[in-house]
Structure formats: structure tokens, C-alpha cells
Design a protein around this nucleic acid. Structure first.
Lengths: 336, 336
DNA sequence: TTGAAAGCGCTAACAT
DNA sequence: ATGTTAGCGCTTTCAA
């Protein structure tokens, strides 16, 4: 095993110990527990280490401590505009705590998600699973092993951050009612998504006095949204709330294609506020605070890694409606 | 050191060796070099390992081999829609090669980029730096240490993947000329971006017969795009090419605000094709193939990690113009 | 084809 | 306050 190529220069603790005339433990302590050493020793050792360009070997440290200083965030699709802000703020918070972040993209597949987790688990002290597609059982098994924080998945006893659509959705319904709509549609997302389930519920319960048609869209995409417009028109609805902004944009395109103008003839509301502010016309959307969720998830995970007693905690992030062009006017013929 | 908590269940090679009645070396070989063992032994050992739920300890492996099986991708802003598809395809390609991916977001700061790299370096065998803001010197120093692949940064001698805007930009200029424009504007991006530099050059050289006004936008954002419209109008241009789709959307909003309709009164072209297909109206855009770049970068890096002799290789990804609604008609009064 | 044993670089009991 | 020492779990030479 000796004659093995070392890619890195390879300054070890031993080298420093020799150069600084102290034992290896002293060198180690100078970095990990300087309180135990006299200040002069610490300074001396650190100076020598710096001079030699010492860089701690993570593998050795991890092997010895069982701690890597790494976490992983797994998302179903990083290209879905909901996740980048979440990942971004998560990584930023992790960086502050000196944690490095692995990213896994499961491509909306529970199986790939499981594989990714298995691959990452041995070098990771904690997981953030955003909108996981994994089965409850597998998640619970993982959570028994190490700290896990869920985002937008509601599993009792497992720490989680939930973006609560109730507020925003209710506001959206109110607005549509006020605009004079009597029959609205919900363009639903994937059934295994917690967010979708929650939105369905809110909508069917909060829509007092309104008729709500649920239209299944499947995997939320621009194309799927556009293609759902025929069903939307058939439903007789004069307004719609879409599962997310991408679908909403697709619907917008499909409506224009048929000469139905928004908001003149039809009112449209998206969710998550991802694209909404970036488009022309700007979309009315239920603001999701994905970035807030990312920070919250990171902080929750960090607390969990410090003392594993916070288990089961659930943070809720409220939403609200952001009104923009697509609900600017009442639909034609509506009784305002 | 014995009485240390082991968070993971901790099935080790030793456990398997005991259960399978073989030596630990045999177990190790069953995974790393099965050719050296009899097929039956391999099967047997692997079966036992699977039954016990064995998961190799990366730290120990890395400590022994010097290899982690990790790479890192560093981006200036994962929330910028150009990067998620790139990261996504990169991670997918890495997964195929059984590599785990660290994600770093530098927040457009060279300093944070350097810190991230330093933090990640000791557990990573290679880097993909996408649109790095880092100084040339620091990049070269890093590249001397370990395999590095650049995306959209052109440093001689360092392997890189460049998205070449020439094709798409030239097509865009041609189209605008054909539509009857005589004076067009380029809404420029950040000067330290290689992509922006390249686009400026192409535009000023390819625009034979056209006048090109360059309007500085700064950090590319929706708001910056919208705010640049006053300068755009002042310039007297009847068409514009924006540094990216986000800026393009902002410009669109600014134009509508002034009652200038697109494409009726004005023609607009974006770059990167990130938002372009997802909005209404759909944007004409120079398609960037960020996803292709991600795959290419991963494969290049993997080749580099296998034999470090491919250094200096440069892959170029061509672009083309995708024509959509925002250049659908000639501007009013233009001579078609 | 397999086993025995050394050691990768670090940390943390234990001893001083 | 510092040194001594025994591993962490794995790979790999060397010997059989």
C-alpha cells in the first residue's frame, strides 16, 4: 500500500508535527480543540501548517470521527423553477455552517431517488428531501438512520418544512369570486405531490358558493398546461387556478391560441410565484417562498444534526396571493 | 477511540468476512476486482453482503485509495434559468459513472467561488466550473492540482466547453435584416462574462449593413431589462437582441408599458432559450443547449479523470436561432 | 484463487 | 498542557 500515487501534494499532520517539534496529537488539537492547548502552541502549529500549505484530509478525518461535514439535498427536478431558489438558499445556509452540499436530481422517479440516497448516504450526515417521491416506509427507514428534513411532504414524526397553500389559495378563490366568477377550474398536479393534495383540499373546501372543476394535467409542464385547455374550455369555467406557474403559462398560451384573452375573457392564477413575475403579461400567483423553505430546511437540519432531539418538528410557511395582470379585470359578462 | 458512536448501522467488510467464512481481502476483492476471484466466491460474498445490507464506507475507501468518486459543479447562480438544465444533465451523466455531485453557488462572487472550491477540493476528484468569475490565475492553479473543466470560459490549455453564440447570433441578425430593420440594439450582459464578450464581438462584426447600438444592462435581470427600455427607445432601434431571456422578458414588459407592441412595432430576440418557450408570447431566442453543455462537461471531466492527458481540449457547442412570436411580423413601416 | 498484514491520515482515550 | 497509542474501514502488496 505504500507505493500509491497521491494526487495531492500530501502535507500530513506528521509533517507538521516534525517541523513544529510537537506530537501529532498537538497538531490535531491545534485545529480541532485549540482550548486544550496553550495559545502559543496553537499559533506556532498553525503558522507552520500554513507555511507548509497543509490541507486536512477529509477522508481520514471522516473515518476517524464518523463526521463528514456534508449534507445532501435531493429534488425531483432541478430544472423545475420551484427548486433552484430553494437549493440556492439551502446551500447558502449550509455554507455558513461550513457544510458542503451534494445535489441529487431524481428525475421524478422514486427508484432513482432511492439510488441517489443510497449512493450519498455514506458520506452525508443529513438529508433534505424536497418533494420526495419516495415511499413513506423508505423515508422512515432513512430517517431512523440519520437526520432527515422533508420539504413539502407531511410525514408525522419526521422534521419537515411545509409550504402551506391555504392562505394564498383562499385569497385566490376570494378574488375570483369578487371578480364575479361562479365556476372555476383547478388544473391539478401530480397526485403523489403533497402540495397538489393540499391544494385540492383547500380548493374544494374553501370554494363556498363556487363550483370547482378539477382537471387532471399530470406531470406539470408547459405543454401539458397548453393541452389541457380543451378540457378547460369544455368545463365551462371562466377562471382557473393552475398547479404551478409553468402549467399556468401553458394554459395562457392555449387560451390565446383559441382567441380567449386573459384577463379580458378569462382569469388565471398560478402557484409558486416562480415564473409569474418574470413574464409578460405578469401572472397572478400564489407566492410560495421556496427560498424561505430552503433556509428553514437547512437550519432545521443543522439543529437536528447537533442534537437529534428536535425530531418531529414541523415548520409551516404561509403563502399569500400576489395579484398581477392575469386577474386584472373581471371577465366579460360577469356580474361585478 | 473504540467507544465512539457510530451513527450508521455499520456493517463492515469484517462482518461480511465472518458471515461468509472468507478473509476480508476476499470481500474487498469481490467488489473492487472480481476478476481475481472465482465466480462462486464473488457471488457468495456479494449475496451475503446484500443480505446484511452492506454499504461501503466511502471515507475508508477514499483514505485507502485517494479516490472519492465525487465531483463538484460550481455555478454563479443556480436560480439563473441557464444553469439548472446544465446541472441536471451533468448530474445525470455523473450518476451513470457512479460519481456523486457537489453543488456550489458562488452568488456571482469570485471570492465566494474561491472559498467554495477550497472547501470542496479535499473531497473531490474534479471540478466543473460553469461561467466562473474566478481569476485566470486561480483557475490555472486549481487546474494544476486536479482535473478541471470550464464551461463558457475560454482559457487556453484548460479543458472547456464553450457555447458558441456565433451561429445563432448571426441567424438572428439575418432575420432582423430580412424583416427590414436597419438599426438594432444589443442589450449587453456583465462584462466579465465570456458569453457576453463573444456576443458583442459577433454582433459588431456580423451586422453588415446594420447599425448596432450597445446598451449596457449590467447584472442581467428582469428589472434591469425593463429599466433599460428608456435607453432602448432613445437609441432609435426598431429591434433588439438581449443578453439572455430574463432580460428579454424585462424588455418586453417595458415596451408594453410604453404601448410599443411586440412584434408589431418592435422585434425582440433573447438568448439561451431558457424562458423563451415557456412564456406567452413565446420569445424568439438563440438556443444555447445548456443541457448539452452539461453532459459534455461531465464526459470531458470523466475522461480527464481517467487519463489526465486530454488536457487543453476544447469542445464547442453550436447555437441556432429559434424563431417564435416576438419576431413573427415585420415592424410597422419597415420595408419588407 | 485466497489469506495475512501493513498502512492510508486523522482523532481521541489515556497517561503524563 | 502535551505525548503515546490504538484504532476508524478499507485496499493492496506479499506470501501461500
Amino acid at each position: 500500500m505504500s507505493p500509491r500515487l497521491q494526487r495531492a501534494p500530501g502535507v500530513t499532520i506528521g509533517d507538521i508535527a516534525a517541523a513544529a517539534q510537537v506530537s501529532r496529537s498537538t497538531v490535531s488539537r491545534a485545529f480541532t480543540r485549540p482550548q486544550l492547548l496553550s495559545p502559543e502552541t496553537v499559533d506556532h502549529v498553525r503558522a507552520v501548517a500554513a507555511r507548509l500549505g497543509y490541507v486536512g484530509n477529509q477522508a481520514a478525518r471522516a473515518l476517524s470521527t464518523g463526521r463528514f461535514g456534508n449534507i445532501a439535498v435531493v429534488v425531483p427536478d432541478i430544472a423545475n423553477p420551484f427548486f433552484p431558489p430553494l437549493v440556492r438558499s439551502l446551500q447558502s445556509a449550509a455554507e455558513t455552517a461550513d457544510l458542503a452540499v451534494f445535489l441529487g436530481d431524481s428525475d421524478e422517479s422514486a427508484e432513482r431517488e432511492a439510488k441517489l440516497i443510497a449512493r450519498l448516504a455514506p458520506q452525508v450526515e443529513g438529508f433534505v428531501l424536497a418533494s420526495p417521491r419516495l415511499s413513506e416506509q423508505l423515508i422512515r427507514e432513512l430517517a431512523a438512520t440519520r437526520p432527515v428534513v422533508l420539504v413539502n411532504r407531511d410525514l408525522d414524526g419526521i422534521p419537515r418544512v411545509l409550504i402551506d397553500s391555504t392562505g394564498g389559495m383562499t385569497e385566490a378563490v376570494m378574488l375570483l369570486k369578487k371578480l364575479g366568477h361562479e365556476r372555476i377550474a383547478y388544473l391539478a398536479g401530480p397526485r403523489d405531490s403533497w402540495s397538489d393534495q393540499q391544494r385540492r383540499e383547500v380548493l374544494t373546501s374553501a370554494a363556498s358558493g363556487l363550483t370547482v372543476e378539477v382537471i387532471e394535467v399530470g406531470r406539470p409542464s408547459y405543454a401539458a398546461g397548453r393541452d389541457s385547455v380543451s378540457a378547460l374550455v369544455r368545463s365551462g369555467a371562466t377562471a382557473a387556478i393552475a398547479f404551478d406557474d409553468v402549467v399556468s403559462q401553458g394554459v395562457l398560451a392555449g387560451l390565446e391560441l383559441r382567441g380567449i384573452s386573459v384577463p379580458g375573457d378569462f382569469s388565471l392564477v398560478g402557484c409558486d410565484d416562480t415564473l409569474a413575475a418574470l413574464t409578460t403579461p405578469a401572472l397572478t400567483s400564489v407566492s410560495a417562498g421556496a427560498s424561505t423553505a430552503g433556509t428553514a430546511a437547512a437550519q432545521l437540519l443543522i439543529r437536528l444534526m447537533e442534537d437529534a432531539d428536535d425530531a418531529g418538528e414541523c415548520m409551516t410557511i404561509a403563502t399569500h396571493l400576489v395579484t398581477r395582470a392575469t386577474t386584472a379585470t373581471a371577465p366579460k359578462g360577469a356580474l361585478t
